[in-house]
């Protein structure tokens, strides 16, 4: 399996606090990966680095077949290169309809001029409708997304990610605050997505991770503590120490 994203030797310091310490990480082209770790392990900072929000002090972040460095690129360029990110808090544009939200996310030319003269074709409309159906919002297209429930917003955000058609999906705690049924649907959306692209899920909830049934990376104090199947890492003494205390 060829590598899509390679992070190697990355460190970042905030005011003397080492949030990420010599972290190395790889993910393939169509792979589902869960990242777990206690609070402050550097999970969110890791995502910030990959999406270009935080610049690391040292290390390399290489992307795609041509191994392009992501460190010199802006957030928008990185997103255009095919990395989508879902935030912990559902962040959709609440003032706009579900359709507008999805249309904005649809993979199209992002330059101001082409956006200004953009007119949605029938194909675009169909694609948006399909996506809405896929995330269970097929009948909510014209509602303001601010009126949606918490879970629906989470799905809308995932839908927007899918509309971007990214090659790598970074998902931060998708199951937070969801009901059991909503979790199941979220799981299936993610597993489905991982068939064609790489998906990285950051999650606290072991139960949810188990449901994803994928390779797990454990972060601790800014570096990788263990990696492997969930059963493998939960048997690891270091992981037990970190999670349960000595």
């Amino acid at each position: 399996m060829s590598t899509l994203l390679e992070v190697s030797g990355v460190s970042v310091t905030f005011d003397g606090f080492r949030a990420i310490n010599n972290l190395s990480f790889q993910i393939g082209k169509a792979e589902l990966r869960a990242i777990i770790g206690p609070n402050g392990a550097g999970k969110t900072t890791f995502m910030d680095i990959v999406t270009g929000k935080t610049k690391p002090d040292e290390g390399r972040v290489l992307w795609g077949e041509k191994s392009v460095s992501l460190l010199k690129m802006s957030e928008a360029k990185i997103a255009q290169a095919g990395i989508g990110r879902k935030f912990q808090k559902p962040t959709v544009f609440e003032d706009q309809s579900v359709q507008d939200n999805l249309m904005m996310a649809l993979k199209k030319n992002r330059s101001p001029m082409s956006v200004l003269f953009f007119r949605a074709t029938d194909a675009d409309m169909d694609q948006v409708a399909d996506l809405a159906t896929q995330i269970g919002l097929g009948d909510q297209l014209y509602r303001k997304s601010g009126e949606l429930s918490h879970g629906q917003k989470q799905w809308l955000e995932i839908g927007m990610l899918l509309a971007q058609d990214p090659r790598l999906l970074l998902v931060d705690e998708p199951a937070a605050g969801m009901t059991l049924a909503e979790r199941e649907q979220t799981t299936s959306i993610l597993v489905e997505a991982a068939k064609t692209r790489a998906v990285v899920v950051v999650e606290h909830d072991m139960e949810f991770v188990r449901r994803l049934n994928c390779k797990v990376t454990v972060l601790h104090e800014g570096s990788v503590l263990a990696e492997g199947s969930l059963d493998h890492v939960t048997a690891n003494q270091d992981v037990i120490d970190v999670y349960l205390g000595r």
């Binding site: 999406t51 929000k53 802006s74 957030e75 928008a76 360029k77 997103a79 255009q80 989508g84 990110r85 935030f87 962040t91 959709v92 544009f93 609440e94 003032d95 706009q96 507008d100 249309m103 904005m104 996310a105 992002r110 330059s111 101001p112 956006v115 927007m160 971007q164």
Partner: peptide
């Protein structure tokens, strides 16, 4: 849509790939 998105949540628009 994009412009109002910038008003409401600049970072989100950026992660959608808009400059």
């Amino acid at each position: 849509s994009v412009v109002r998105g910038i008003r409401d949540n600049e970072a989100r628009v950026r992660f959608l790939g808009y400059s």
